[in-house]
Design a protein around this nucleic acid. Sequence first.
DNA 1: CTTTTATTGACTATATTTGACCTTGTGACC
DNA 2: GGTCACAAGGTCAAATATAGTCAATAAAAG
Lengths: 160, 160
Amino acid sequence: MRTMSNLADRIEAYLKRILGETEEGYIVLQRGTLADYFSCAPSQINYVLTTRFTAEKGYLVESRRGGGGYLRIIKLGLDPEGKFQRLMAELIGEELSQERAYNLIDRLEEEEIFTKKEAILIKSIFADRILADLVPKASALRARMMKEILANMCRDDINI
Amino acid sequence: MRTMSNLADRIEAYLKRILGETEEGYIVLQRGTLADYFSCAPSQINYVLTTRFTAEKGYLVESRRGGGGYLRIIKLGLDPEGKFQRLMAELIGEELSQERAYNLIDRLEEEEIFTKKEAILIKSIFADRILADLVPKASALRARMMKEILANMCRDDINI
DNA sequence: CTTTTATTGACTATATTTGACCTTGTGACC
DNA sequence: GGTCACAAGGTCAAATATAGTCAATAAAAG
């Protein structure tokens, strides 16, 4: 269980909770109102959005300024058509930092492509702590490993 | 003989005591607070963690910096036959060739410690084909990764 | 006396919080 | 239509709050 002791974590949890309670898969709210609710600087909301609601984590944020302005936070599902290939092509590339890898793995766990145990297992060996001193280009290795894992997840003989 | 009166030992004993009293199998605390409690340098805490709370001794440590930062010390679950600890001990400081790794993984799959999918997943990224050109000491990395995986298999907080 | 283990502190890395300033959209007024 | 006030949201950098690393030194063990 997270300590939830800092503001950013509490705002994140709040947004995820109401996102989970809604039917449409997105929520619309105002930055200033939310900032008031948590008695914080409005820019704190941007901080939470940019660190917790990224594309890798499966979210899309739209907004509008001016009168009637708003924030819309959308929870994305995976495209069932060729999802692995799309993920590999769009999100991995030639380099994959520890943080981006973890986000991606969490996302694949949410989509039930990995079990919790598999997610922990993969994250454990993708850690900089494990790779850094033995691998000059750790991000290149992570990218390669992640692609290899995803390719193997497509094997037919895997669910026997 | 240890005098049992040095700081590191007392901090170790303290952490193990509160770990034993908790229900969840892990504790969360702050490095600075603990250092204050023992009136020592914060880095002393890191020393204790790296020397006493290692995977081979049955612990995992996770942490986070910045506001709301914390240390989480996880006590690994019981391993009655000491199988993992023995495997880890054998692998410490050793090298693990692709062939030996594959044999070990197959054995753990037969013993139903890994599912077929997990075995395929691990083997896929342990291949020399994946590691060789990016990792000067591929066997050292495999040994380290394998230990890390085994440690994580003992976590109580993953429901296997 | 030598080797191993423990202690400390200076420096580094990372995450969060806040505030001053910037940009864009809307509508009233001319 | 142009301009202006106001109502959003955006950006960025400084201040603050944590934790990590490393190397020098001290203490203990052998």
